[in-house]
Design a binder for these strands. Structure first.
Length: 487
RNA sequence: GGCCCCAUAGUCUAGCGGUUAGGACGCUGGGUUCUCAUCCCAGAAACCCGGGUUCGAUUCCCGGUGGGGUCACCA
């Protein structure tokens, strides 16, 4: 019989610093936090920075700041320390190496020297033959040496026969045939562990008793169970929460929705309101009550009150909650919130820098920078005046959409700094045969709703990625609508 | 496509074998208000389909359908 139930639980949130702090991270963190606090347990924050290619500078700080803003504090983490550190996976490489040695020695893992080319070809062939995708076990029984100088990875030796059952606390037992499970890479050729290895080793070493995470992990959980068994450790209790969705029901993504917590903060949603809204997505108090504080959620938290489906993140209800809560604030409190979240000194300084040479009187400042605030802008006044120089409105809409897409594919543009954006935009224009002047006009109007604005790339950077993306999406739609009526 | 998860109004949800299927957002109509917002009242709107089990299924079981996730040296 497990002893897990009697000990205070230990849970964790394990974000990957690959971009802006994601709403989904806050969502998962909230449920972990509420569960831990409900039972007097520990909440650990661990940074999963094992992907060197996707690591983004400043991302870790932004994630910590966002969670702190929401009031989801952690007991152990990279900034506060704790008994099980370090709390950044990039600082735990030695630990993973030792555990890889253990698995190799016990035969639960093996060295694989297959090249990318071979694996790519294999995948192509499997897709062509319409058979299950996955590693074919080429190196499985070959006893490859690690010291030959040849690049290698280490793979999990999944038993050929049988099955593994994941006892998900929200969904009941879920069975997976071993024939369905790939020989997962545990150690990459750059010496870094993959999520699967690092996650299991760290969770065990940090004493994590309950893994509360998104449903996207459910299908890889049998691999994790196998790893616990290989090490001879007792696995934690699994809880896979439904995934937040876009309005079209697909997994919440920046392509279709603003997803950075920073964006919601700058838009002026109150932290406790934002949390309350997230809580109603999947958790229900009962008694027809949906307005409650974090503390009230903690006091009432039970898994039976959590539903497994993936809820749509519909900002309209959040808006209603927020309006309600703003009304309930005193004037002093409202003042404090506006100063802290909307008039953030750093953002204001950025606006002052841009307005400095362009205003006549001091109070021109507010109207001049007004487009930096708020969400959508009205394109109706500028659309009739927009000159496209031999391009149709449909073409313009198209290029805007492609622009939004390609931002994410470019590391420089993704970071959303002025220089990176400009370099990207110029190259983008060349690639798609759009003159900078015409392309930039389009971007300016789309992002600001004005034909005259401060230098484009400083402006975009200061507006923030989510706001720009959201407005450009709406602008593309407005261009299309305009094309229709002017036919 | 294989495997896995999920399924009550447009959206978030309550329900845990017998209910006029409840609440919230949104929507519609009306009232209060100099306008707007607030506030108040009223209304339209849901159990995916087909088989079982049962005296009785929204509720339990099976199948289908639909949606989602996942199949990387990303997490």
């Amino acid at each position: 019989m497990s002893t897990l139930g009697r000990m205070p639980p230990v849970v964790r949130i394990a974000p990957s610093p690959t971009g802006d702090p994601h709403v989904g991270t806050a969502y998962i963190a909230l449920f972990n936090y509420a569960f831990a606090r409900r039972h007097g347990g520990r909440f650990v924050l661990r940074i999963e920075d094992t992907d060197q290619e996707r690591a983004t500078p400043g991302s870790e700080e932004a994630i910590l700041a966002s969670l702190r803003w929401l009031g989801l504090g952690w007991d152990e983490g990279p900034d506060v320390g704790g008994a099980h550190g370090p709390y950044r996976q990039s600082e735990r490489l030695e630990i993973y190496r030792e555990h890889i040695d253990m698995l190799l020695a016990s035969g639960h893992a093996y060295v694989c020297t297959c090249t990318r080319e071979r694996l790519d070809a294999l995948r192509q062939q499997q897709m062509k033959d319409k058979v299950r995708l996955g590693y074919d076990g080429h190196c499985r029984d070959l006893q490859r040496a690690r010291d030959s100088g040849e690049p290698y990875v280490v793979r999990l030796r999944v038993p050929a026969e049988g099955k593994t059952v994941v006892h998900d606390q929200l969904r009941g037992p879920v069975e997976f045939d071993h024939a369905q499970i790939d020989d997962q890479v545990l150690l990459k050729s750059d010496g870094f562990p993959t999520y699967h290895l690092a996650n299991v080793v760290d969770d065990h070493l940090m004493g994590v008793t309950h893994v509360i995470r998104g449903e996207e992990w459910l299908t890889s959980t049998p691999k994790h169970v196998l790893l616990y068994q290989a090490f001879g450790w007792e696995p934690p209790q699994w809880h896979h929460l439904g995934l937040l969705r876009n309005v079209d029901k697909s997994k919440l993504s920046k392509r279709k929705n603003p997803v950075s917590i920073t964006h919601y903060r700058e838009q002026g949603y109150l932290p406790q309101t934002f949390l309350n809204f997230l809580a109603t997505l999947g958790f229900s108090m009962g008694e027809d009550r949906e307005r409650f504080s974090l503390q009230e959620m903690i006091d009432a938290f039970e898994w039976s009150k959590v539903s497994p489906g993936g809820p749509v993140f519909d900002v309209r209800k959040l808006e209603a909650f927020n309006a309600d809560d703003i009304r309930a604030l005193s004037e002093a409190q409202l003042h404090e919130r506006i100063v802290a979240d909307v008039l953030d000194p750093e953002r204001i300084r950025g606006m002052i820098r841009l307005a400095h040479e362009r205003i006549v009187r001091l109070d021109d400042f507010i109207p001049y920078v007004s487009f930096f605030f708020g969400g959508s802008v009205d394109y109706a006044p500028v659309l009739p005046k927009l000159k496209l120089k031999k391009r149709t409105f449909a073409e313009a809409a198209k290029i805007i959409k492609v622009f939004i897409e390609e931002i994410e594919k470019d590391p420089q543009a993704r970071a959303f700094g002025p220089e990176g954006l400009e370099a990207f935009a110029r190259a983008f224009g060349e690639r798609h045969e759009w003159k900078p002047r015409n392309l930039f006009t389009l971007l300016r109007v789309g992002a600001t709703g004005r034909s005259a604005a401060p230098p484009l790339f400083d402006t975009l950077a200061l507006l923030g990625k989510d706001r720009v993306r959201m407005r450009l999406r709406e602008f593309a739609a407005a261009l299309l609508a305009h094309a229709e009526v002017s036919k």
